[in-house]
Write a protein that binds this DNA or RNA. Sequence first.
DNA 1: CTGAAAGCGCTTACAG
DNA 2: CTGAAAGCGCTTACAG
Lengths: 345, 345
Amino acid sequence: MTRMGTQKEIARRAGVSVSVVSAVVNGTTHTRMSDETRARVEAVIEELGYVPNDAARALRRQRSGTIAVVVEKIENPIYRDMFHGIYDAAEARGWAVVLGDARWMRSGSHFLARLLGHGSIDGIILRSEGLIDDEVLAHLRARPTPVILVEGRHGPDGRWLAIDDAAAGRVATQHLLDLGHQDIEFVGGERWVPTLERHRGYADAMLDAGLEARDAIRTGYGSRAGAAALQEVIDSGRRPTALVVDNVLSGIGIHAAAHEAGISIPGDLSVIAIHDADIAGDVRPALTTVRMPMAELGARAVEAIAAILNDSPTRFGLVDEPAPVLITRASTAPLQVSPRPWSPS
Amino acid sequence: MTRMGTQKEIARRAGVSVSVVSAVVNGTTHTRMSDETRARVEAVIEELGYVPNDAARALRRQRSGTIAVVVEKIENPIYRDMFHGIYDAAEARGWAVVLGDARWMRSGSHFLARLLGHGSIDGIILRSEGLIDDEVLAHLRARPTPVILVEGRHGPDGRWLAIDDAAAGRVATQHLLDLGHQDIEFVGGERWVPTLERHRGYADAMLDAGLEARDAIRTGYGSRAGAAALQEVIDSGRRPTALVVDNVLSGIGIHAAAHEAGISIPGDLSVIAIHDADIAGDVRPALTTVRMPMAELGARAVEAIAAILNDSPTRFGLVDEPAPVLITRASTAPLQVSPRPWSPS
DNA sequence: CTGAAAGCGCTTACAG
DNA sequence: CTGAAAGCGCTTACAG
């Protein structure tokens, strides 16, 4: 194990001042030193395995070079592309990224304390699905550290960024309409704004096609909620031929419930979900989805932080480019001319 | 937006010294001050919305109170319980946890620099699946910051912790044997140690039952690898009645390939995967798995960091309690007396 | 071209 | 019971 050491120690060993060491480490102004001096310093740095102390740097520079990303369920596959977009954009700006889960943000948690504190985090990208209570959010906003809400769409400071959920709903619905479906319903969560927007997109597409838009079937989020939604439809006696589903996990739950109920997808029922994820291609039948520009959303959030820190202007609001794209898989099919009646549940 | 301020400013406004402010903030020794003084200081803290500067604290205390967890694919659902275990244990010790993905650890990345640096991270829990190159790992180990490898099982410093993969392989295989299966094969990745151990467990159970243990079918990891493995079996002309699969994602890939090939699970083929995850219960047929003590693994890793930082001894090696538990779902069934021959592919 | 010094915001002996 | 001061390890004007 190497010794590490400090700039002071390196300075002593190399027979120079710490200013020179700092200049060598950072490649900064002081840079006009003799090659011989530089080489000597570099040799000692190498020998000791010196690395700078980030806490001291952060204190002195008044900037840590680290941003935090907080999402609701870190294992949710839809974040993958967003993390990637954030990471790439941050890296390009010389920032490190750390991740956290909103489930860790209980009042009084040390994770939250680090976020609420300052000095160690320069900016926060937060995707709240309502789990974060308003008090915590207010605390967060009261700090000078910039907080960007993604898919949040509220916040008095206007610092939010979101994907075009209404467009996603429209694209999904249009795909089903193009396949000849008319009796289409929307399955989705609760009164979370993105879900409302997706439903609005569905409703717009239906109305444009001269069809009736139904209320959303609200059984919550996740696979269990999807299964419950299908059950609700079955129990109601309604027999839609296609479903627009708020998210992939709910779509998978619908697959499972259909399997149990003897409903064939896509033979009896077409299913399309919003947001893409690898798992959609892995289940059978593979789930048709609408891919959203999550990487761009992430990159834009990083840009927003940079802009705020530099006091330069930046655009908030919808990230509508690239547009949502349809990923056609096996769970949607043209409307059967004479559909087989669903077996009674 | 509140002003934040520093202890110095609070001291000035409250007409006390910074020592008193620090004592109020931290509740420390200096604590024998008059109630009136304390109240005055607290009022100013409240008024300014003061929060301590973490960088300054970390510098002074020579400890940041933050540990980092680095895994290979952050969205892999098997980490969920481990993160939970880590978070709870860290919280109990007053530490914040930050997450990172090993895919971010390219040499020269700022994320890696933060890990390699010191002052902002007190300890690192690392699950490497071989993506991290040895050079990076060597750098990491050369620092005074403790690095605990989970599911790594190598490392000259002996600082590793792992679940009992061999036991998992045994439990999975025994379940199939109990159902009457004899022609059982093992599907799993590459020469990654945990996979080798799982295969060893499988082989032990087979041998104990007086049966022949086959070599692992090595097509890699993930759902595509699972599908490829099943195809390899089909092509070979072998007709096992049951498969022990290294992981859930490969299991899902096998489901998909079986669906395509017209092989019924569990009618024609029973499938059990090692490691549990929600998605296993969501696919159809729901996948039987072996749940591993991932939360305990995480908690033990935190304990290990604490022990190293305190210079107190700690146990490394296998985390074999609680033992792996069988989660019986729908993908395994008793051996059919006269199995239907697989349709020729 | 290089060094001495101030200061980032804390914590903690030490003095009174 | 409270204050003045040192020092954690850096960076960056400033002086020479």
